[in-house]
Design a protein around this nucleic acid. Structure first.
Lengths: 374, 374
DNA sequence: ATTAGCACTCAACATTAGCGAGTGCTAATA
DNA sequence: TATTAGCACTCGCTAATGTTGAGTGCTAAT
């Protein structure tokens, strides 16, 4: 028979790998040479497939659970598969229109948009959906208003340059006149306009003390204010469909599940992981064109948001070794970037999920842009 | 032998039942007649115990998992046990002092107090802790402030007669002058002072329309305002330690666990269940002295908060048939009452948990009273 | 280079047997 | 009459054993 050139070899291997993954994703059972012959019509016998499988195993793209079982993709195998998906699958029409529909109802607040997005990611993927709200400590302070609301309390409304507002109530030690409040807010506004929130938080106590040595109550107020800003500027996260993870048949030990839920409960850990993704994104945007090594990110015809995929043990947490993270970013203002996506089993329909996250990320970005325009 | 009078009979049965429960709670395994002989030194042989066990089984206080296994308490058995605990166990000193310590750090806001309480309930019990924040729709509207914060947005600060504040931002269709806002807030304040939030929510659109037919923008603002009030007055809930439930060895089917987590995710359902408890509490307070039938509530020397216990299938949700709810109430103002407690396995140390919930409820009530004083 | 054929492996399932904890009953006993 | 000792019986649990079948790896034929 005619000699196979190396390129054809590789082609075949790729096709078989894809076939293994598709079949495994579909059934959840190790796939044998025979089922590949019947599902992926390559015109080859099972023996030939077995040879190819051997080669793939050599490259550590698939493994045996045990001697006489079919093959299962390894993390590396999934990785190769995902990386080779150059074409972004189009989302099913019905799903796309459903998403559009959900977003059509006018949304007033950014918070609502994000929490709704998280719910939607969960409900369409049937996995866990998340939306991380970025730290806003890098935002610039514009001004604040102090409104007395009786009982020695003051409502503080803080506005950043990008138009985000945060508000909270502070308890005062004693009475304070409207006059005095006006003075204080004037001082703060003058001193801090254009600073980052972080700076404000760090130096508000000190500065106010300097400026108004004689007013005792201001000092305590400033302290509380600093505290509150610190609290506010931490990143938070929306999570939906966490119970969906329990429905996954793959999760082995109960210990794993517990770890995972601890992770979910302490959202901070999750925030950290996602922040890494966000940083990677920024860096790369600065660095320019991606090269071949730039794995795990799906570039979408030069357009902004990329979809990242983290497979199993690529995640930094051991409890996630059977899970994958499909995420993308959204831009809330020039300086703040958030992450959104889904957390599902390693054995998931990557093309579909990538398409979903990509589309939602695009949509969210578009809506946020409209928000800013206003 | 001397005849046993009926009272002694009952005494013995009760002792044996308690012994079964203690042993079962400790080990988790069905307990046989022999282990009762050795642990509860009643000076009786295993044969006698077996007779007593038979009687208890007749009364449906215990069951056989299968023919040749030991006995396991039924829900009814647990109920009888809990009801017979007249004496409130004292909380261990170290735990009591730990709780005191945690609450010592000055807490500014009611929200912080409640969320911390939930965490504490979870961490001491090692089960799931919860604190339900009651609906405040019955609160009376006192007044609100409207503060423009640029970009066509208004910060609304609403104060109720009990001094609770709620605040949120509204987007306006177009510009609005400070003057105009002042007029609007005056109208609202005059019209609604002393009404319940529910009334405000229901009639604000209509009333404003009547009062100010000429101002278009007010109508839309009123609508949003109504919406927002509605959102705010829904009851919410703090939950901690949900992952602890996964550590319970008792939970049988995975389906159960899933149901449970769905329940936890949609906190509304849980709110409903807890609200029932709260209603029961109010009713009874009105009705006067409790009689013997008044089961499931631990009265504490005539003092206010009672601890309720709901065992297994006494809960209205099927997924909770292996769980128990130990709850008590706290008073936030005269009209608003919240529920707090723990959700744990049916097989739990009731005396300890009841003591814990009781103590925390007392403490929270005390602190809230101090808050009001200020 | 591909394929048919075959020996071999091993998880999964079913069957069986033995153990032992625990019961329920009965007859003896205090 | 209440209690107890004794004993047959039940039944879940575990380990041991056998059987099946999917799937591999190798070799020789094409």
């Amino acid at each position: 028979m005619r000699a196979l050139n190396p390129d054809e070899q590789e082609q075949r291997k790729r096709k078989v790998l894809h076939s293994v993954i598709h079949e495994y994703v579909r059934t959840g059972k190790p796939v044998g040479s025979h089922s590949i012959v019947t599902t992926a019509h390559l015109g080859l016998s099972s023996a030939t497939i077995r040879n190819t499988l051997s080669q793939l195993e050599e490259e550590e793209l698939i493994t045996h659970p045990h001697t006489s079982a079919g093959r299962v993709p390894t993390d590396k195998g999934y990785r190769a598969y995902v990386d080779s998906l150059i074409e972004l699958q189009k989302l099913a029409v019905r799903e796309e229109s459903r998403i559009r529909g959900e977003y059509e109802t006018r949304i007033q607040e950014v918070e609502d948009l994000l929490s709704q997005t998280s719910r939607m990611l969960s409900s369409i993927s049937h996995y866990t959906g998340f939306v991380m709200v970025p730290k806003i400590e890098k935002n610039l302070f514009s001004h604040l208003e102090l409104v007395p609301i009786g009982n020695n309390r003051v409502l503080v409304a803080m506005v950043t340059d990008t138009g985000m507002t945060k508000h909270f109530v502070l308890n005062l030690g004693g009475e304070i006149t409207r006059e005095r409040l006006r003075t204080i807010s004037r001082i703060i506004n003058q001193n801090f306009e254009g600073r980052t929130l972080q700076e404000v938080q760090e130096s508000i106590t000190q500065r106010l003390e300097e400026a108004q040595r004689e007013y005792r109550e201001i000092i305590s107020l400033a302290k509380d204010l600093g505290q509150e800003i610190r609290k506010i500027s931490m990143s938070s996260i929306y999570l939906d469909g966490t119970s969906n993870i329990l429905a996954l048949p793959d999760l082995s030990s109960t210990g794993d599940i517990r770890d995972l839920f601890k992770l979910i409960e302490e959202k901070e850990m999750l925030s950290k992981i996602l922040e890494d993704d966000f940083l990677a994104e920024s860096d790369e945007a600065a660095a320019g064109a991606p090269d071949r090594k730039d794995q795990g990110k799906r570039r979408r015809k030069g357009q902004h948001p990329q979809v990242h995929v983290r497979i199993g043990s690529e995640n930094p947490i051991k409890a996630m070794r059977n899970l994958s993270l499909v995420s993308s970013t959204y831009r809330l203002s020039d300086r703040t970037v958030g992450v959104l996506g889904i957390l599902g089993p390693k054995r998931m329909e990557y093309p579909k999920m990538i398409a979903l996250v990509d589309f939602i990320s695009l949509t969210v970005n578009r809506i946020l842009k409209e928000f800013e325009g206003k």
